[in-house]
């Protein structure tokens, strides 16, 4: 009983971590926090993959001389190894987008930015600048 609970305990916590990452992405309005949430989500997916590759009593997949060694599955390791490096490159891309948003709007809070956009939109309606032109043509 204990052994079987521990056997799927990893999955439960990994799903909890995933949901915490998802909550940081959809529940928080700060863009930096959203990117951190994506990182958390990403790492939990990595954990899920590596957990699938584990074999009880296995060794790391580096060949040794004895014949009857059980090696853990190397395929998830390869997939995750490249995904980590690609993940940090795309995180840097997201951070640079956040920096540009900050220099355009002066804020990285989603509420501020949508409020500024709303002000712009109402101004355009008041002055009849762009929207009227579109209707006339």
């Amino acid at each position: 009983m204990i052994s079987s609970t521990i056997g799927i305990w990893n999955y439960w916590i990994v799903f909890c971590l995933m949901m915490i990452g998802l909550f940081l992405v959809i529940g928080r309005k700060n863009f930096l926090k959203k990117i951190v949430g994506l990182t958390i989500f990403q790492t939990s997916v990595f954990l899920l993959y590596i957990t699938f590759g584990k074999i009880k009593g296995g060794t790391p997949p580096i060949l040794n001389t004895s014949i009857d060694t059980i090696y853990s599955n190397p395929l998830p390791h390869v997939l995750i190894l490249t995904a980590i490096v690609v993940g940090v490159a795309t995180t840097a891309l997201g951070l640079s987008l956040v920096l540009r948003i900050n220099s355009e709007y002066g804020s990285i809070e989603e509420d501020d930015i949508s409020a500024q956009d709303l002000v712009d939109y109402h101004d355009e309606i008041e002055t009849g600048k762009s929207i009227d032109l579109k209707f006339k043509q």
């Binding site: 056997g7 999955y11 949901m19 998802l22 909550f23 074999i55 009880k56 059980i70 599955n73």
Partner: peptide
Amino acid sequence: SCIILGGILIWCSYDLPEIGQLTAPIH
């Protein structure tokens, strides 16, 4: 919505193979 989705995932985890089983499909 996160809690509901997490609950569904945990419910589904009973169908996953236990950690470290040599007979799991991935191996």
